[in-house]
Nucleic acid binder design. Structure first.
Lengths: 212, 212
DNA sequence: GTATGTGAAGTAATTCACAGCT
DNA sequence: AGCTGTGAATTACTTCACATAC
């Protein structure tokens, strides 16, 4: 599938991923069709939003009936690009890094960690979830050889920018950043920040002010 | 500080947290004032956005000069409620749960895990980061006794809704959810979902379509 | 001159309302 | 009748432009 140059928002892509997940859980037991209202209920999304998100990419539904579950699942997979295998690198094999290596949700969607690095000499050579931790000096070599386009940063903030620069120079286009710092990159590089402390800070604000 | 009933968006609160972080790093070495342009550069936010975010809560700056670093830092802390200690519960002491227990960013902001639970009998009684894993049956008791308002869910999707219900019944008001499922809760309960698989799905979409 | 604070303007995202298909 | 697909309306968020303060 080739998407017209229509601009798709981050929000839409994210929701598509949640639709795909609930469809995947359905597929076995359920046959036939599903409506946008049902998808909406399962994902806490208004049905009109579900339809609009899908409509950006074509007309997959049947008026009066809904969407064919199997077909829709395949379509969303295609749109998201999750029918392909993606190679991912990890920098920082601390407790968070190891949790990411072990996270089953990535493999399910076709994202495979194929290289892990750490500056800690004691960790180098050790194996976690079948990935052997390597010395940082091989970063560029591995990224190029394994055609890695997605890099994951799970190191303290102080080292994150430098690793980002090395990632980008080596050909990484997408960065999954768990370090609490906003990385400076060219516009064409995608960065997703998971800032756990800022996320939890929303709660103290809410508990204090009962608003947001 | 009491905030007028002006509606503050999630985006504003989140950004305030990032401003606070860069201010905290400055405080030692730097004296005096900082401008919205400087804060903006450090957090990848337009300066006009920085000023607008701050202006929701009062007039902390000085025209022609900027903001007093120490004072601004204190103000944002007050706004976010991070000058207080918040008790947090964790359900699910798998690799992700343990990474959360070990994450230093929470304590820095005043969020302390004070109870952890797991269904795995082998984990119960074990200690991680000074927290002893307890049997799930003590969930309600601990939440009430320790006045826990923030609960963290790091279990598979299949158990997440049931735990949510127990959380809410016991008095939890904010839920930090790492399970890949949209939890159903009353409107007054705050939920922040960290859906790692959906986040990474954005990358395959981008790599495939070079857009979002 | 320099930087804040803010109403007004602009942009983006969501929701409504309904025409049209099955 | 039931449900999709979509332009129009709405709401939310961001950026601009500039009056005001130091």
């Amino acid at each position: 599938m080739q998407i017209e140059s229509l601009k798709i928002s981050y929000f839409t892509v994210y929701r598509l991923s949640t639709y795909l997940r609930v469809l995947s859980k359905l597929d076995r037991s359920r046959v036939g069709t599903i409506t946008s209202v049902e998808i909406g209920e399962m994902t806490c999304t208004p049905d009109t939003q579900v339809r609009k998100d899908l409509a950006y990419f074509g007309q997959f539904g049947k008026s009066g009936t809904g969407y064919d579950v199997k077909k829709l699942k395949r379509k969303i997979s295609e749109i998201l690009g999750t029918r392909k295998i993606w190679h991912v690198a990890l920098i920082g094999v601390g407790s968070l890094g190891r949790a990411l290596l072990a996270y089953p949700g990535f493999k399910e969607r076709g994202f495979y960690f194929v290289a892990a690095f750490d500056i800690d000499k004691k960790k180098i050579g050790k194996q976690f979830n079948k990935i052997i931790v390597q010395d940082m000096r091989y970063l560029e070599k591995e990224i190029k050889e394994k055609k890695i386009k997605i890099g994951t940063i799970a190191v303290p903030a102080s080292n994150a920018q430098q690793i980002t620069n090395r990632f980008v120079d080596a050909g990484v286009e997408c960065i999954f950043n768990f370090a609490p710092i906003r990385l400076k990159v060219m516009k064409k590089i995608r960065v997703r920040n998971i800032d756990l402390a800022s996320e939890i800070a929303l709660f103290s604000f809410y508990l204090k002010n009962k608003s947001w």
